[in-house]
Design a protein around this nucleic acid. Structure first.
Lengths: 409, 409
DNA sequence: TCGTACTTGTCCACCCGCACAACAAATTCT
DNA sequence: AGAATTTGTTGTGCGGGTGGACAAGTACGA
């Protein structure tokens, strides 16, 4: 839902104002704090126009005037006034639903995590149980929220396939969920009605890394996440690749070896059967019930075993297909691929270099996430914040004020 | 480059006018002929605004008033005046560079092919030879062009990987070209200086099918082209997927069978080694020198042989990986896949259904191109026309008037 | 220490472009 | 033929970005 699709519509002047106000807020959000002078050059608008927009943002209670960034002051001239996120400005709830635990945070503009809480998720938990657990965490997290701070929405990261039209969880294999309307469940448990956005964890990882991680300024990147299942979030040309239903990026089921092991999807030799959590757990003789904590197990290794090195090569070979398909500038390795990259990075790189075409290979770089294990959580915050950048006024109109009181009552 | 990437810029009112004029022209271009009433509802602007824009288009010599579309007239009320492409309106040169022949056309707005010519391309021809040949075809094609019709640019479809930053042909395996600046070569042979755009043939096929083929109104589609090599053009969310360097869509080198045949790319068992032109030619015992005319050979078959059916299944299996990755709504089978789809379509469909994930599978459809074998040519015209839709006034400013005279002199 | 140069914020008039309303024109329906 | 309907045309109004003039605030140099 990044840049809304105005497929062929004209632009009237009201839309201009909306767009400019939203874009300005996006810049403030991206930088956390920014001077009006920088905004004028970034947006290519006149000083007076920026002044008007900043004034509107302030009167909406979103931003506030900041002292001219005391630090690096360069050149002569009057210092430019800073625009900063207001202390009790709008916020969102971000939920990272993992296979074994849920993390919930209240996040403000600028990606600031204001409160955070987490709880284990019972294995094979019913959706409504998990929903109740998440709702409890949300109550906890808004406990200290200032009454003036409006809640714009809730963003939820899901380890599975999410239909983009309505946020239905079509399939979350490792939660054993089919067609679950988790957004509705959480809202019902809270007794609230705010906009809820759900998306795949890898998609959100990509979004977060693009907005405030290693991918800032890089418009073609892929976030490959190893989390029991293997998935990818793709950003191309600065936009999220969603696909017709929202299921794009299912790289775990790329054909890898037609003679390979059977996959839970019904096929044989999917990439996931080689580099997925269960395959790796088996390779390093890790008990199956600890697959969810595979990254911690892997972090315990200090030297790569031959099995792990083979896995690294397989990761590289799979990445080669991905790189050939998408030609990204950056591939971010998330989930337990993080740990693996630190252990057998050279094997991954070698496997990639061996199988990728020269042209896409020369411009691609592998890297670790810049946000550690918070990528998906912060990505969930981003999609919930998104409406603010499309139309700040409208988004604040539908936002919820004094959430704490409403949840108490 | 559909909606240009104003990455974070603001919109001033000059940009509004540009955008609206360009969008209006895009609609006229898409429909060929359209009424002002339709334009008002499509663009969501006021009648009078549309009137102003249409007036500007007419005074630029791009469009002209048309009688109210004599045909289906519905409802009461004054009939709406039509907007049609002007007879001597702007045009472009489209070049479809094939492995064995080059097709050149002069194409006007609305995708109308005004003149066309073609010539064989010598096997292993040097780039400058091919360039001279193409230049001759261009001269031929502008022979009868009205002097008033400005030439906006040249678009060239290339069977290979094209760098998007400058249009350099990095690799065209079946022409045996490496790092060829074909655009410059053609311009030099013509002694002209007009904007030249180059792109991969599959990318352009996707673009053309999306603009005026079977993919009209479908924003997530893939055009898979079998043309000696196998490539794909991807349109997602209505935008071309280009990738960092412009090489996205190299599906021919997806890993298909690690124990398979060696591929010219240096690997083993790429999809192309199973379903590429040479593999198919071998399977049906077609002499290697007729690979370029494989579609004609295939059209000679009236019943599918077991070898072809196996190939069909392999195509389906490969498409499954593509569908899992991109989740398109439509997959268009171009090149000799057209002939194959007519022969062994059920095997292709079965192979796809067998291997794709349920969620992406349920919304995807396979189909033949709506533009036959002209997809790439018309796509080349589209990229050449593209600047007109971004800023008609500027594009006409750089256009070349009275091309015929200039080429003669 | 003071003056100059430079950059930015603020205020103003101005212009551009879209919206809106009123009227005229053209066609269908009754 | 007249009513209803839809659209083109025209003039006015308004929103919003632009640009200039001036003030404010800082750095640099004498």
């Amino acid at each position: 839902m990044t840049a809304q699709r105005r497929s062929g519509l004209g632009t009237n002047q009201e839309a201009v104002r909306r767009h400019n106000l939203g874009t300005l807020l996006r810049h403030v959000h991206g930088a956390g704090q920014i001077s009006r002078a920088e905004l004028t050059s970034l947006m290519g608008l006149n000083r007076s126009t920026i002044a008007g927009l900043v004034g509107e943002l302030e009167s909406l209670g979103i931003s506030e005037r900041a002292t001219p960034a005391g630090g690096a002051r360069q050149g002569a001239g009057r210092p430019s006034a800073g625009v900063a996120i207001a202390g009790d400005g709008p916020c969102v709830i971000a939920v990272d639903l993992g296979v074994d635990r849920a993390v919930v945070a209240r996040v403000g503009l600028g990606g600031r995590v204001l409160q955070q809480a987490q709880a284990p998720v019972p294995a094979e938990g019913e959706a409504w149980q998990v929903g109740a657990s998440v709702a409890a965490l949300i109550r906890e997290v808004v406990e200290d929220a200032p009454a003036a701070s409006p809640l714009v929405g809730i963003g939820i990261s899901v380890p599975g396939m999410v239909r983009r039209s309505d946020g239905l969880i079509r399939l979350a294999p490792n939660l054993e969920w089919h067609d679950v309307s988790f957004g509705g469940i959480v809202l019902a448990a809270l007794g609230l009605d705010v906009p809820v956005s759900l998306a795949n964890d890898a998609d959100l990882g990509a979004l977060a890394e693009h907005t405030r991680g290693v991918g800032v300024g890089i418009d073609d990147l892929i976030y490959v996440s190893g989390n029991v299942g293997v998935g990818a979030g793709v950003i191309m040309g600065g936009h999220r690749l969603e696909g017709a239903g929202g299921y794009a990026g299912e790289v775990g089921h790329l054909r890898f070896d037609p003679g390979g092991r059977p996959c839970h999807c019904g096929n044989r030799g999917c990439w996931e059967t080689e580099v997925g959590g269960h395959a790796i757990a088996e390779a390093i003789h890790c008990p199956p019930d600890k697959v969810a904590q595979l990254d911690e197990v892997l972090d315990g290794f200090d030297s790569p075993s031959p099995e792990l090195r083979r896995t690294g090569t397989a990761i590289g070979h799979g990445l080669a297909s991905i790189v050939n398909m998408f030609n990204p500038r950056l591939v971010v390795l998330g989930g337990y691929f993080r740990s693996l990259y630190q252990l057998v990075g050279t094997d991954i790189e070698a496997g990639l270099a061996d199988r990728a075409l020269p042209a896409p290979l020369e411009s691609v770089r592998l890297t670790l996430p810049g946000l550690g294990s918070d990528s998906a959580l912060l990505g969930a915050a981003e999609i919930a914040l998104e409406p603010l950048f499309v139309d700040p006024v409208a988004a604040l109109g539908t936002a919820l004020v004094d959430v704490r009181a409403r949840l108490a009552g």
